[in-house]
Amino acid sequence: MSELLQIGAQRPKAPEPDSLELRFSPTAVEELEALKTHYPDLKSCVLPTLWIAQREYGGHLSPEAIAEVAHRLSRSYAEVEGVATFYSMYNTAHKPGRHLIEVCTCLSCHMCGAYRIVDHLEEKLGIKLGETTPDGVFSIHEVECLDACDRAPVLQVGDQYVGPVTPETVDELLERLRSNPDSTVVQLADAVVKVHLRDGKA
């Protein structure tokens, strides 16, 4: 930042609309057009479009992804970035691994040993909460209540809940996930988009 303070320093500019590299696939564009008809106002379409972007950009809402969403919905970049960074299920902070394991550490899970599970995951994968393994396969996040206290301690992977878990079942889960080449992060985003396309009906 210090170099920006210097007088006459060039501050980075927001990308020009013409210079954006649009990466939505034809399917995604089709889905977006269908979604637009659900709302009276394009502003309302920001959330589902961010899910499409999360899927199209491999599970990560990079600044480029946010810019593309803003461009496609004729909103300002800042506004869409504000929305994306507000919600924790949009991965804006960093690119998650192929599989994102979300550990509920709210009251019930905590009482049932959620932090033992966290410790086990951290030891097993050699990373801390909020980090990604160097091979890019696993990320672990701590999340608030997943509304599945009956299955405490519970994990979320993609659109699936796993629980109650023990260190042993966690090991099995990791093995199973390691052999799964498809990203569960992308799969979750796709599932959410599908729900939106059905207008919220299951």
């Binding site: 927001a14 600044p63 803003a70 800042a78 506004e79 970035e81 960074t85």
Partner: peptide, 21 residues
């Protein structure tokens, strides 16, 4: 709409897109 709030709670900050100009 050049400014918007990023993040939430105590971390909420008014900012341009990626703190650009």
């Amino acid at each position: 709409s050049d400014l918007a709030f990023r993040f939430r709670g105590a971390e909420m900050q008014p900012s341009t897109f990626q703190l650009t100009d």
